[in-house]
């Protein structure tokens, strides 16, 4: 079983001409191509993944799909950027109150491209928050949360909350004056909440006071718990997008089928 890709929309002249039988011997690149195809076929024979890939990639998007519909995937790319740069930061970062600041200073001033990667992580968070709000605005004003996509809105809303938790927990990590005091105030604000407030604050601080384990707790939440949840929920979100299809812009009406029009004449 071979995976058949549709022809990409390139002009006729640029398409490679098919090889005529007996014209010449298969070149090295032909052999390579065939090798590739049979490797893919080998994997597919054992996993049947091509069905899923085809379902995801070759579904149709409705008429009128425009640039506003790229905001969701743009948010996803901003998240991927956070994940990638975060991995590199984690190679140097040390979440202990004595070393956190020093390790951040090392990243910023000494590690190769350190400040650049830290900058990408820092400004990437701003870009991601802006994009997620724009994407949410798009789905809101297009009425895309209505039947049958209610559940996808709910998943998205949880993603928004988790994204905000990411930036709250990440803000403490450089452990400079600004991040330290802003986080103290932030945790205290949580503590004023009704019912769960005090418990939430104690959980975040790992105790009644801001102590040695607070920082590692924030770090674990920031780099394991929440990103895991976000990645899983993005998966669910995209599954629903592919399953239900994206909306058409609300002002579009379908043209009636030309076949039907012919008959009614």
């Amino acid at each position: 079983m071979k995976l058949k890709l549709p022809a990409p929309p390139i002009p006729e002249q640029l398409k490679p001409a098919p090889r005529r039988p007996g014209e010449r011997k298969p070149s090295a690149s032909d052999t390579l191509k065939e090798g590739g195809t049979s490797a893919v076929a080998w994997v597919d024979e054992r996993t049947s993944l091509s069905g899923g890939a085809r379902w995801m990639m070759f579904r149709k998007v409705p008429k009128g799909t425009n640039w506003f519909y790229t905001l969701g995937s743009a948010t996803m790319f901003a998240f991927l950027n956070q994940a990638m740069t975060g991995v590199f930061l984690a190679m140097y970062y040390d979440p202990s109150p004595t070393n956190a600041y020093e390790s951040t200073r090392f990243i910023t001033n000494e590690a190769f491209l350190g400040e650049f990667v830290r900058g990408m992580h820092k400004w990437g968070s701003t870009v991601m928050v802006i994009l997620i709000f724009l994407h949410m605005g798009r789905t809101f004003f297009f009425g895309a949360y209505k039947y049958p996509r209610e559940l996808n809105w709910v998943v998205g809303a949880i993603l928004l909350i988790l994204t905000m938790v990411m930036s709250f927990t990440g803000y403490l990590l450089p452990f400079d004056q600004r991040s330290y005091w802003a986080t103290i105030v932030g945790v205290n604000i949580n503590g004023t909440g009704p019912l769960v407030g005090p418990y939430l604050s104690d959980f975040l601080r790992a105790g009644p006071d801001f102590g040695a384990t607070t920082l590692s707790r924030f770090y674990a939440i920031h780099m394991l718990l929440i990103p895991g949840l976000i990645a899983a929920l993005i998966g669910a979100h995209l599954y629903l997008v592919a399953k239900l299809g994206t909306t058409a812009p609300p002002w579009l009406k379908a043209e009636s089928d030309p076949e039907l029009r012919k008959e009614s004449k």
Partner: peptide
């Protein structure tokens, strides 16, 4: 929606 989708283009 099914009509609009049928008149659309492939995702890839």
């Amino acid at each position: 929606y099914a009509l609009l989708k049928a008149q659309g283009k492939p995702f890839f």
